[in-house]
Design a protein around this nucleic acid. Structure first.
Lengths: 183, 183
DNA sequence: CCACCCATGTAAGTGGTTACATGATTAG
DNA sequence: CTAATCATGTAACCACTTACATGGGTGG
């Protein structure tokens, strides 16, 4: 039950239409809560029905016409309530770790290439995050909002750093297993 | 599409009944691919229907009677195929990071307690992983299977280490924001 | 006027969660 | 005999994914 709250956050940062939201999810919020345009449109209608957001009155609401939304007071309250509410962490699900465990039983044949590919994907994401950090969070520190957003970005940077390092470690292990295997 | 493969892996490690699998998911495989007993029973029947596993012939198949399964050759092949197949990483979804970003807009009121709670949960999980490491992977290194399984465990240890450290960092930041706020 | 992109939407299917049901076995 | 627990199962629901549809505007 987090997508509506992701959308409320994005709309509070800046009122937007569905497609604008979709793009911002691709670049920013989506780094830790991804969503497709189908999900976003559905949820926007639901939030409007619940009275948490409203369409900006400006224009004609025809199909194919841009429709921007803003958050109402009830929406801001709901977001504050959700943010403060105690929530248990979701159980983990990571397919790559599962595949490695499977490989311990059925063999590592073919896995190494994909590990290498994942390493590159994580390295690229890490570089993206670092660019955002250079651009948006220069050394002289800003206000409370900036510091919180920087904290979130640091989590992304540290997570991608972890994955690239761990995958390097895994690939080194694979190389050694190969050598032993050929002996 | 990973739950069937998680089950195949677990059954190859040791043929088991549904409930035994459920318990093992709670302790081990579930650390990176969680599943409830309902999911597991449903999937076991599906895998049996597809001819990837079979019920061990021993006993009467009545309701309330234990029924153990083992993996057939076709199941092992399917697992090997899946393990080697290239797969894209799933888009991230982390509610805690989302809440922090929301807090940058609606305020941090009430969040700190839950951050502290999460920190303790991650610290506890880290301790659990470390105990497993001491018990199952003593310094003198074992064969290829053990090294792969150890690699997976290391990912768990490093991830929980990251989270505890990041949450410490976040809590320190909160403490500082509080001081500034009161000035 | 045609191809392409913008913007919003529908529909079907999958995987996971939550709540509940039921028979068998065991401890007190 | 009863309550608790073991073991398996059903059903409803919800979030997300994937594939497709449709109207409006714009450039060649």
């Amino acid at each position: 039950m987090s997508l509506p709250h992701a959308i409320l956050t994005a709309l509070l940062e800046k009122p937007s239409s569905g497609l604008e939201l979709t793009r911002r999810f691709d670049r920013s919020i989506g780094y830790f809560w991804s969503a497709t345009h189908q999900q976003i449109y559905r949820e926007l209608r639901k939030l409007e029905g619940e009275g948490l957001i409203r369409a900006l009155p400006s224009e004609q609401p025809a199909r194919g016409q841009k429709k921007a939304y803003e958050v109402l007071a009830a929406g801001r309250e709901e977001l504050a309530r959700w943010t403060a509410a105690s929530q248990d962490p979701k159980p983990q699900r990571d397919a790559l770790l599962l595949r490695l465990r499977a490989a311990a039983v059925v063999g590592t044949e073919g896995l190494e290439d994909d590990l290498r590919r994942h390493r590159e994907l994580h390295a690229r994401q890490l570089e993206t995050y670092r660019e955002i950090e250079r651009r948006d969070f220069p050394p002289g520190r800003g206000g409370a909002e900036d510091r919180l957003r920087h904290l979130v970005l640091r989590a992304g940077i540290d997570l991608e750093t972890f994955w690239t390092q761990w995958l390097d470690h895994a690939l080194a292990e694979f190389a050694e297993l190969d050598v032993r295997g050929r002996e």
